[in-house]
C-alpha cells in the first residue's frame, strides 16, 4: 500500500514536470522570430503645410521590410507607421525603392492619405524630403534618418545572403581582405550557414565586414546599407559602390539641385566622375 502511494505521488510529480517542460518548449517553438531585413525612411521630422508655413507638425516615420520566421514558415513583409501630432497611422502598400519610399496612409482600415519621400546625403547624415497628403491637406515633409543599432544577426544575414547568391565573389571578398577564408563557399555547401554563425558571433571580423559591404553594394534600397557605404565613401570615394550610391542620390539632385550645397565631399567627387564618364561616352567613337 505504501509503495503504491509513493508510486502515485512520483507519477504526479513526473507528469507535472514533464508537462511544464513541454509547455515551455512548445511556446518557444511557436514564437515567431523577426528581423529588420531592409530599412526605408526611419526618423523624426517635420510636416509643413503647403498652404501655410506656420501650420506644421512634428512627425515620426518608420518604414521597413521585416522578415518573420516561424518554425515552419518565413515571410518578408513591408510595413510602416506614421506618428503625426498625437495620432498614429499605419502605412500600407509600401514601396521601398533606391533612395525613395512611397506608401498609402491608413487610420484603422480607411485610407486617409499618401506619402512619397526621396533621400539625399547631408554631411554624414541622410535626410528625406517629399510630400504627404493627409485628410485632404498637402504637406512638405522633411525627415532626418535616425540612427539604429544593427543587430549582429542582421549583419550576419547580409554576409549569408551574399555568399548564398555569389559563392565565388564571396570567396574572393574574404581573400581580398588578406585573411584566410572562413570556409570555401564554392566547394562547401554548408559554408554559408557556417559564415552566418561565425559572423553572428564576430560581426566586426574583417571578412564579415567585407561580405556585408559587398552585399550592401548590391542593396542600396536599404537605408542601413547606404549608411554603411557612405562610411566607406567618406574615406575612399573611388569604390565602385560609391558610384552606384552617387547615382541613387543624383536622382534627388535632379529634383532639388540646392541639396548639393550641403552634400558631402565624396558625393561631389563621384558626381564629377559620373559627369566625366557621361561626357566621354558622348564624345566617344560613333
Amino acid at each position: 500500500m505504501k509503495k503504491l502511494l509513493t508510486l502515485a505521488v512520483a507519477l504526479i510529480a513526473v507528469l507535472a514536470i514533464g508537462a511544464s517542460v513541454m509547455a515551455q518548449q512548445v511556446g518557444a517553438q511557436n514564437q515567431a522570430r523577426t528581423m529588420i531585413k531592409m530599412l526605408g525612411a526611419f526618423g523624426n521630422g517635420l510636416a509643413i503645410s503647403e498652404d501655410d508655413p506656420m501650420d506644421f507638425e512634428l512627425i515620426r516615420v518608420g518604414i521597413a521590410a521585416v522578415k518573420v520566421e516561424s518554425a515552419e514558415d518565413e515571410k518578408t513583409v513591408k510595413v510602416g507607421v506614421l506618428h503625426f501630432a498625437d495620432e498614429k497611422y499605419r502605412l500600407k502598400d509600401v514601396v521601398i525603392g533606391n533612395g525613395s519610399v512611397t506608401a498609402n496612409i491608413y487610420l484603422d482600415e480607411t485610407q486617409v492619405g499618401s506619402i512619397s519621400l526621396d533621400s539625399y546625403p547631408k554631411e554624414d547624415k541622410e535626410l528625406w524630403a517629399g510630400t504627404m497628403t493627409l485628410d485632404g491637406k498637402t504637406y512638405n515633409v522633411y525627415l532626418i534618418q535616425g540612427k539604429r543599432v544593427v543587430k549582429a544577426e542582421e549583419k550576419a544575414e547580409k554576409a549569408f545572403e551574399y555568399c548564398r547568391n555569389n559563392p565565388e565573389r564571396c570567396k574572393a571578398a574574404m581573400q581580398a581582405v588578406g585573411s584566410n577564408v572562413i570556409c570555401d563557399p564554392v566547394t562547401d555547401g554548408n559554408c554559408r550557414e557556417r559564415i552566418r554563425t561565425f559572423c553572428e558571433g564576430n560581426p566586426e571580423d574583417s571578412r564579415c565586414k567585407a561580405l556585408r559591404l559587398a552585399e550592401c553594394g548590391l542593396n542600396l534600397e536599404d537605408a542601413q546599407c547606404r549608411a554603411e557605404i557612405r562610411g566607406v565613401c567618406s574615406n575612399n570615394a573611388t569604390e565602385n559602390a560609391c558610384q552606384r550610391l552617387g547615382e541613387v542620390y543624383n536622382n534627388m539632385v535632379q529634383k532639388r539641385p540646392e541639396i548639393l550645397e550641403n552634400a558631402p565631399q565624396w558625393f561631389h567627387t563621384v558626381r564629377e566622375r559620373l559627369q566625366q564618364e557621361s561626357e566621354g561616352q558622348q564624345g566617344g567613337p560613333q
Binding site: A32, F42, R60, V66, S70, A71
Partner: peptide, 26 residues
C-alpha cells in the same frame, strides 16, 4: 504565438510590433 504556416495578417502583426519597438528606441 504563431504555429505552422504564417498567415499574412500574423506576419504583418509581428512585423509591425518589431517596427514599433524600433521606433520607440528612436
Amino acid at each position: 504565438p504563431t504555429t505552422g504556416a504564417l498567415t499574412e495578417a500574423q506576419a504583418e502583426q509581428q512585423a509591425l510590433q518589431t517596427l514599433d519597438q524600433e521606433m520607440e528606441a528612436l
